[in-house]
Simulated assay, not measured.
Amino acid sequence: MGTLTGRTVLISGATSASGLAAARALLAAGADVVATGRSPERLAPLAALGAQTAALDLTDETAVRGLVEDLHARGVRVDGLLHLVGGWRGGGGLAGQSEEDYRALESSLTALRHVSRALDDDLRASSAGRLAIVSSTAVARPLAGGAAYAAVKAASEAWTRAVAQGWAKAARDAGTELRGAAVVLRVTSLAGLEDRLAEQFVRLWSADAAQLNDSILAVQEKETA
């Protein structure tokens, strides 16, 4: 494929099945992959694929900035960010939405804020910067049993769209062509769609940034004839 040769993509929260699928697809497309997660043991399969790995807590802003500084010290600049930090807690209606559940879910938004800020300069400077988060169709139709989950996903979408607006405004103010795109990838469930998500993420580099930026894309199974 080779469409991403020479580009570096960071996967935040890469130790899931979706992270493995994304790493495979990115490496096959020629990208250098930096895979992050909390557990060195769970990062080992990604290293075996050929990804660089970094074990850290993405809710720790100092650790995140340290990772980016280390990449820069090695001459590495990041062209893409796929944010996969997430999880599910819910059920029991509003009464079942505990504060503990919300705080656990909120960590994905905290991680997104830290990573996207730390990589903002890199993604803006790239000739084709791409940022994508995985969100949920629950944002469009939240249910009481998943109120905390939908609220965090909605906030993450708002943050990503704010990134998109910032990039577009900077390009307009400078009188230059928009080269970066921040997008939301929505799923009903990732189960069985890991490879499809990976393919769609890789294809972001084949799309025009101006048309792609600030878009919400559905990740669905391929249609069968």
Results as ranks from 00 to 15, higher is better:
G2F: 01
L4A: 04
T5I: 13
T5L: 12
R7M: 11
G13R: 00
G13K: 00
T15L: 08
T15G: 00
A17G: 03
G19K: 01
A22H: 03
A23E: 00
R24T: 14
A25K: 00
A25F: 04
A25D: 04
L27Q: 01
A28K: 06
G30I: 12
V33A: 02
V33I: 05
S39V: 10
P40N: 09
E41M: 06
E41R: 05
L43W: 01
A47W: 04
G50T: 00
L56S: 05
D57W: 08
T59R: 03
E61M: 05
T62E: 12
V64R: 01
L67G: 01
V68K: 01
V68G: 00
D70I: 07
D70G: 12
L71V: 04
H72G: 11
H72F: 04
A73N: 14
R74I: 06
G75C: 08
V76T: 10
V76E: 02
R77D: 11
D79G: 07
H83I: 06
G86Y: 08
G86N: 08
G86Q: 10
W88D: 00
R89S: 09
G93D: 08
L94W: 12
L94K: 05
G96M: 12
Q97M: 07
S98P: 04
S98K: 06
Y102L: 14
L105G: 10
E106C: 02
E106P: 06
E106S: 09
S107H: 06
S108N: 03
L109G: 02
A111L: 07
L112K: 03
L112Y: 13
H114A: 11
V115E: 06
V115H: 00
R117Q: 13
R117V: 15
R117Y: 13
A118G: 04
A118H: 02
L119W: 08
S126I: 11
S126D: 04
S127N: 07
G129S: 14
R130G: 07
I133P: 14
I133E: 11
R141G: 11
R141M: 14
P142H: 05
L143G: 08
A144N: 08
G145E: 01
G145R: 02
G146A: 09
G146V: 14
A147E: 03
A151V: 11
A155T: 13
S156A: 09
S156D: 04
A158Y: 13
T160H: 08
A162P: 02
A164I: 13
G166Q: 02
W167C: 11
T176P: 02
T176W: 12
L178I: 03
G180L: 12
A182T: 09
A182H: 09
V184I: 15
V184T: 12
L185S: 09
L185C: 13
V187D: 01
V187H: 04
T188Y: 12
S189K: 03
L193Y: 06
L193C: 07
L197S: 15
Q200C: 13
Q200R: 15
F201R: 07
R203V: 14
R203S: 15
L204A: 09
W205S: 01
W205F: 08
A207E: 15
A207I: 12
A210Y: 05
L212R: 04
D214M: 07
D214E: 09
D214K: 10
S215C: 13
V219K: 07
A225E: 00
A225S: 09
